[in-house]
Design a protein around this nucleic acid. Structure first.
Lengths: 209, 209
DNA sequence: TCATCCAGTAAACAGTCGTTCGCCCAACCG
DNA sequence: CGGTTGGGCGAACGACTGTTTACTGGATGA
């Protein structure tokens, strides 16, 4: 196996992680395509040439950050799935979980929001692929619910996409709220709950006509 | 008046516009924060120092591009308002208008999508302000419709925000479709129409419970 | 007509950048 | 133990960056 770290590979992974952490930290106020290789190595305290021992270039590091970020996000999804109840409670719980995870993984979410439509193609594609996988998982969850009886696969996929986009949107709204203003956060949560409820109502009446 | 161009000011505005156009062209494959001042002046055929006769710095040019872009967008909104009919026709028309405007103003929409959460604060704020103004106008439109009877101002504003976000999302989806693939474009339009219809259904049943 | 203005210029400034090249030396394996 | 591996280093490379300076010359207005 390759992951049973000898003291050798362990140190390598430690500096690799340090590079990722420094990158994420520096990305708080700029975007990936304007972030310099030297900027990162300087922050870590490593010679510029050392960077190449871990990443081919900056977009390579960007793709690695995408994986890391979606680790957090999948943990969030599992937390949402965990709380099973009916409609209103699920919605309230969902918004609360999003708020909590954004608070605890601010840098990761900001990175995803910023680079989702950002300047580096490889990173954009990596994010799109992860979001797509996410929507697919959600779709299979949704199709198991009684509300989805009589729905076509395509419509379920459409609804899953709507939910995923909405959740990303809610998360980025929380990001834009001032970090230490619980009032603005509550205002955003209030709007987010209503929007999710409206979508839920639409779902319940999809097959009416 | 300042806008009755003498041959003097006319030429100034022409190179200013040339700088904006070159900027927008170069932003097709990168983001604003990685775009260099010299890159733009080189493209236009102007000395680097000349840039400062028109913009304080790159974020200043970015804000100007935001205004220019939302000129296109407001034209689009007027086109949507123009076509009045009921529910399904409105939705089909809306999606068609978005598709057309994205096709005709690709660079502007890509710029907005990319910089909405991008690296430069001033530009982000300018975009947020424009989108907010947009949502406010839409809210006042919505409140004049019979479907909004009995709705609180806050809920109407919530719905308007949902629509605006959805329209931006639809536009960026079109952007990501290959430019000359009418089939993928139709697939996206199909999904977009259903998502808007589901939201519309939710709207109709908002006051049920 | 003549003095004034000002968009655009050329040159130089002090930096920064990504990338390549040997080299070193501690961890590793037989 | 001795030979090999490979992460990290320091230095140098050419190219590029944003910004300031003093200037030119055509449009401008009295």
């Amino acid at each position: 196996m390759s992951h049973i770290a000898g003291a050798r590979q362990a140190q390598k992974q430690r500096t690799r992680q340090a590079l990722l952490d420094a990158g994420l930290r520096l990305l708080e106020h700029q975007s990936l395509s304007s972030l310099g290789l030297r900027e990162i190595t300087r922050e870590v305290g490593v010679a510029p040439a050392g960077f190449y021992r871990h990443f081919r270039d900056m977009s390579d590091l960007g793709v690695a950050l995408v994986s890391e970020s979606f680790g957090s996000l999948h943990a969030m999804v599992r937390a949402i799935r965990g709380e099973q109840a009916k409609s209103d409670e699920v919605i309230d719980g969902t918004v609360a979980v999003i708020a909590r995870y954004v608070r605890e993984h601010r840098a990761h979410f900001r990175f995803i929001a910023r680079e989702r439509h950002g300047g580096m193609q490889q990173v954009r594609e990596a994010i799109a692929a992860e979001l797509d996988k996410f929507a697919e998982e959600l779709a299979s969850d949704l199709s198991a619910q009684p509300e989805s009886e009589g729905w076509s696969q395509e419509d379920i996929r459409m609804l899953a996409g709507l939910y995923v986009n909405q959740m990303v949107l809610i998360a980025t709204s929380f990001l834009e709220a001032s970090p230490d203003d619980p009032e603005s956060e509550e205002r955003i949560a209030r709007t987010a709950r209503r929007q999710l409820r409206l979508i839920h109502l639409g779902r319940l009446h999809w097959l009416d006509g």
